[in-house]
């Protein structure tokens, strides 16, 4: 068995509403080898997004440890965590979350502004990323000039433009029609196969989950094998 790239060990997460504790995740243990394509499934409120947020380092566990590529994410400071995310994580949101004032090129370029790449190098990487998602001819288009599927593909280009080893997608097909959803999942599958990206997708769509090699099911905050 290959070495774990993403590892969660006895992870618990609760939220507090005033004095009321709301447990979300219970004693989660998960190992994802590098280059895997994992689908996290489960009904609404089962804790899928919370689990993905913990892996992405945009939320912290109440207890337990989350590590990615040997780095203990849960122990990093906020500032270090931000730098770590910019280098290691590509994140795809359900509602694309593109900047409406930036065109496709500029949206994809956004994460590269945090790097030391010069303008020409940034342009080359943005063009490559947009070519991978099949939108090289839509560079100057603004989000409101693109379809939902195209917007999500731009969001995927933004996620891969820094060449991260781990791509996390939170319901990437949740706001798309059937055909666009199929194209987006196919694209993620291609990134996994051709570029050896480790991909973890949260979805409640069984057809989308079929593209993944491993499917895990969350129910009431507990993780089960399907």
């Amino acid at each position: 068995m290959s070495k774990s790239f993403v590892q969660l060990h006895n992870v618990n997460k609760s939220y507090w509403r005033d004095t009321l504790e709301i447990p979300v995740l219970h004693n989660i243990n998960l190992d994802v080898p590098e280059g895997e394509f994992v689908a996290l499934m489960g009904p609404s409120g089962s804790g899928k997004t919370t689990l993905l947020n913990l892996i992405a380092g945009i939320d912290r566990p109440s207890s337990g440890e989350v590590s990615v590529n040997g780095e203990s994410v849960s122990r990093l400071s906020e500032s270090a965590l931000a730098r770590w995310r910019s280098r290691n994580i590509g994140f795809v949101f359900q509602f694309y979350n593109l900047m409406p004032v930036l065109n496709a090129f500029e949206n994809v370029e956004l994460p590269l502004l945090l790097t030391k790449l010069n303008r020409r190098e940034r342009r080359r990487q943005v063009e490559t990323a947009l070519s991978i998602v099949g939108l090289a001819d839509r560079m100057k288009h603004y989000p409101n000039q693109l379809s939902g599927g195209q917007e999500q593909r731009v969001a995927i280009a933004r996620a891969v433009v820094t060449d991260p080893r781990l791509i996390l997608a939170d319901e990437p097909t949740g706001d798309l029609d059937k055909q666009s959803a199929e194209e987006v999942m196919e694209l993620l599958s291609r990134l996994n196969k051709e570029f050896n990206k480790t991909i973890i997708v949260v979805t409640h769509d069984p057809r989308a989950a079929e593209k993944a090699h491993i499917q895990r099911h969350l129910d009431k905050g507990e993780l089960n094998h399907l």
Partner: peptide, 14 residues
Amino acid sequence: VSEYAVMKTLGFRP
């Protein structure tokens, strides 16, 4: 607020 959250997710610092 959501745009700033996205930027922070991408690695932008305060």
